[in-house]
């Protein structure tokens, strides 16, 4: 369970470092870096803060991860989550943030 920060997309804005509930992200040479990837809780707060889509989320192999990544993009009230698999296939789910869960 952890995140990967794409150094080419990160602009060093610090928003992720600011909100991480575990203080796990620091800024080194104007880019975000995760201090200890094993300590990530998986809350995805950093993904939601990132304005350049530089952060992706993945499951460790010990809990069934196979290398897919989850990313998120907001447009108005719509939040689109994308799962990209290693074979290149992907799926998206859009959630209206103004709508309640059905369950």
């Amino acid at each position: 369970m952890s995140i990967r920060i794409k150094i080419t997309s990160c602009v060093g804005c610090k928003r992720c470092a600011e909100v991480c509930p575990g203080n796990l992200i620091k800024i080194v040479n104007n880019r975000a870096v995760i201090r200890r990837e094993k300590d990530c809780w998986g809350c995805t707060s950093c993904l939601k803060e990132c304005k350049t889509g530089a952060i992706e989320f993945f499951l460790g192999a010990d809990i069934g991860g196979k290398g897919s990544v989850l990313s998120v993009e907001d447009k108005g009230d719509l939040r689109t989550w994308t799962v990209k698999r290693l074979d290149g296939s992907s799926e998206t789910i859009t959630v209206n943030t103004k709508e309640s869960n059905k369950y």
Binding site: F57, L59, V83, N101
Partner: peptide, 19 residues
């Protein structure tokens, strides 16, 4: 609906299902 509900509180579960 379960996929969405989990994305709103525990996204790792939805990722696990889809992955």
């Amino acid at each position: 609906e379960l996929y969405k509900a989990y994305l709103n509180m525990a996204p790792s579960q939805t990722l696990k299902w889809l992955e």
